[in-house]
């Protein structure tokens, strides 16, 4: 199990990386953390002709908070996200989510930019980007492009990035004070890809949601920002309301079948997650089994 031969270029700057991408386009692959790319190459599932290693571009690494915007460089690795006090303070949902990404040795190499550009529908960070209303910043031959997370994920391993573009950063609006979050996923073993997962951000006032964003993952070919969340906003949540939202959620899902679960099981687990999320965010244990009854 050895990768096919390829040529290697160590990008010295973003401009250099873009030049290489422009010259080689789809024949090239950008190597960021490599934690998804290299397994695929070792298994010879893909055999790029050129690897453009952006690992030395330190300007793409780091977390900055400025004027209500959290900017995370594409090369920031999962371990850094997990340890970042800025993220813990301003996007704790992300901190919770990253703890579920694979294992420590993988988190030391894997990057947020790599994860988003890879666009595995079962991975955690893409869904978080939807929930948090992130903007993906890409640079290409024509300059910088800002892509809303809602329009970024286009399918299994597919994104709105053009072959000549490089994902350089993400921007997250800092959620308002007192907003709350919920993250949970069902995975067979610690660090495994989720069977179904949910990254939620909410604002609760007087026992009601005034805002609720539900980013589901592993429920289709891309992460899903559930519209059905709307059914839970500005209403008193009863089991009936929750059941209605679950039913609406069911209509939004288009889950895939794999070794771990049938589509029916994914639909079921998504509804369980919805109930647990609502129950947890509203601190109402009696709703926990609500939608599943």
């Amino acid at each position: 199990m050895k990768a096919s031969a390829f040529a290697y270029a160590r990008a010295t700057s973003v401009a250099d990386a873009l030049e290489l991408l422009t010259a080689h386009g789809e024949r090239a692959k950008v190597l960021s953390g490599g934690q998804s790319l290299l397994p695929a190459m070792n298994l010879r599932l893909i055999a790029p002709e050129l690897i453009i290693d952006i690992g030395a571009l330190t300007e793409l690494r780091g977390v900055v908070v400025k004027e209500g915007v959290l900017t995370i460089g594409a090369l920031t690795c999962h371990a850094d996200l997990l340890k970042s006090p800025e993220i813990a303070a301003h996007a704790p949902l992300l901190t919770d989510a990253v703890a579920h990404v694979a294992h420590p040795a993988i988190r030391n190499r894997g990057t947020i930019g790599g994860s988003l550009a890879h666009a595995d529908p079962a991975s955690e960070l893409p869904a978080c980007m939807l929930t948090l209303g992130a903007t993906i910043i890409a640079r290409g031959p024509g300059g910088e492009r800002r892509i809303a997370a809602s329009g970024f994920f286009a399918g299994i391993y597919e994104t709105a990035l053009a072959p000549q573009e490089l994902l350089v950063a993400v921007e997250l609006p800092v959620p308002p004070k007192n907003s709350t979050h919920f993250f949970h996923e069902f995975a067979r073993r610690q660090g495994d890809y989720a069977i179904v997962g949910l990254a939620a951000q909410a604002f609760v006032r007087d026992g009601r949601f005034t805002d609720l964003r539900l980013g589901f993952f592993a429920v289709g070919d891309r992460p899903l920002l559930a519209r059905s969340a709307g059914k839970l906003v500005d209403v008193a949540i009863t089991p009936a309301v929750l059941a209605e939202a679950a039913s609406a959620l069911n209509d939004e899902l288009d889950p895939l079948e794999d070794h771990q679960a049938t589509p029916a099981m994914r639909r079921h687990l998504a509804k369980i997650l919805l109930a647990r999320c609502v129950s947890s965010l509203l601190a109402r244990p009696e709703l926990r089994a609500g939608a599943s009854a």
């Binding site: 290697y8 190597l31 934690q35 040795a105 030391n108």
Partner: peptide
């Protein structure tokens, strides 16, 4: 930092 050495190229 610990890493998986099968998921890193020597050139890196």
């Amino acid at each position: 930092d610990i890493v998986r050495s099968c998921l890193m190229l020597a050139v890196q």
